[in-house]
Design a protein around this nucleic acid. Structure first.
Lengths: 164, 164
DNA sequence: GCAGTGTCGGTGACACGACATCAATGATGA
DNA sequence: TCATCATTGATGTCGTGTCACCGACACTGC
């Protein structure tokens, strides 16, 4: 047929693309639910665990830096951090040299929780390990990376995992 | 090392799995933002468009049926539908034979909007068409389907697209 | 110094997503 | 028939994601 590079597409093609969109959506939702289940006993949500994770990895960060590292949230994650501060898991101290910024770091209590967080992520990892071989996981990652080229989230991920 | 099949995994492996989780998350977020941008002029959100889509595809459905077909939302999407009814895009009539159920269908106004919805989905499709070849898209779909085996979302998708 | 520009963090508004609970109704079986 | 159980849909609550907006502050060039 006279199908060209990036034009409309047949009905079947549209359908396949819609399925693909839904598959991505579904994978995210299922993963999030799984993670939420694992984290619930610790009183944490996936988003909160994300924040704790980057702080555990990178040490002290400003709010904007955290916002750029985590995939979630376009703006700055002020409110999620608020909850963590209230629960004494994260310390927030105003910057002295640049007085706009806020420096975030884990408290001792927050560091203690990291073990639980790691264990929860492990549960999700197991599911993926069982479903896909190492090579398939690599293929999946490569394709998704390709889809995300040129997006902010893509940048965030390659900054966090790339060339690592 | 005495590393076995589906046990803990090395540090590098854990890192790779975390990246994979984030890639899925990022793909979903970026897609959703893209779709939201396209739908905003029409005053629709991606979730709302989802509901309109299934109703356009399948005709009249009950709330529970819609809930099972769409990937989103674990319970029943009462509230999203509420908004659509208020905006006169969806008709909601109580069931007569089973008086618990509620029958949903598109209004003429809702059907008119479908063109816009289709066009918005198209925009997202284009992005995927440009990033991946047909074969790569197929691979991606296959792998994601595998990850979703045994999950509710997986069921929903194969019910909607499977054996089609 | 100073005006214009951009960045940082916070907040209000709105809609979702997930969970728990509830009343109404239907289905089942003693 | 009647008690029990399951399903449907609605609702309250909480946290999140997104956008728009704001004030505070830093930086740049003049």
């Amino acid at each position: 047929m006279s199908r060209r590079k990036a034009t409309a597409g047949s009905d079947a093609e549209t359908r396949a693309l819609a399925e693909l969109r839904h598959l991505v959506l579904a994978a995210q939702r299922e993963g999030n639910r799984w993670l939420a289940d694992e984290l619930r006993p610790a009183g944490l949500t996936p988003s909160q665990a994300e924040i704790l994770s980057v702080l555990a990895e990178q040490g002290e960060l400003t709010l904007a830096e955290v916002g750029r590292l985590i995939v979630c949230e376009t703006g700055s994650p002020s409110r999620v951090v608020d909850l963590l501060v209230k629960r004494n898991l994260v310390r927030r101290e105003p910057g002295t040299v640049d007085r706009r910024v806020v420096h975030l770091s884990l408290t001792a209590q927050g560091r203690d929780l990291m073990e639980t967080v790691t264990k929860a992520e492990h549960a999700l990892n197991m599911a993926m390990l069982q479903a896909l071989s190492a090579q398939e996981r690599n293929t999946l990652a490569t394709l998704l990376r390709r889809v995300l080229v040129g997006t902010g989230s893509g940048e965030a991920i390659s900054k966090r995992y790339g060339l690592g």
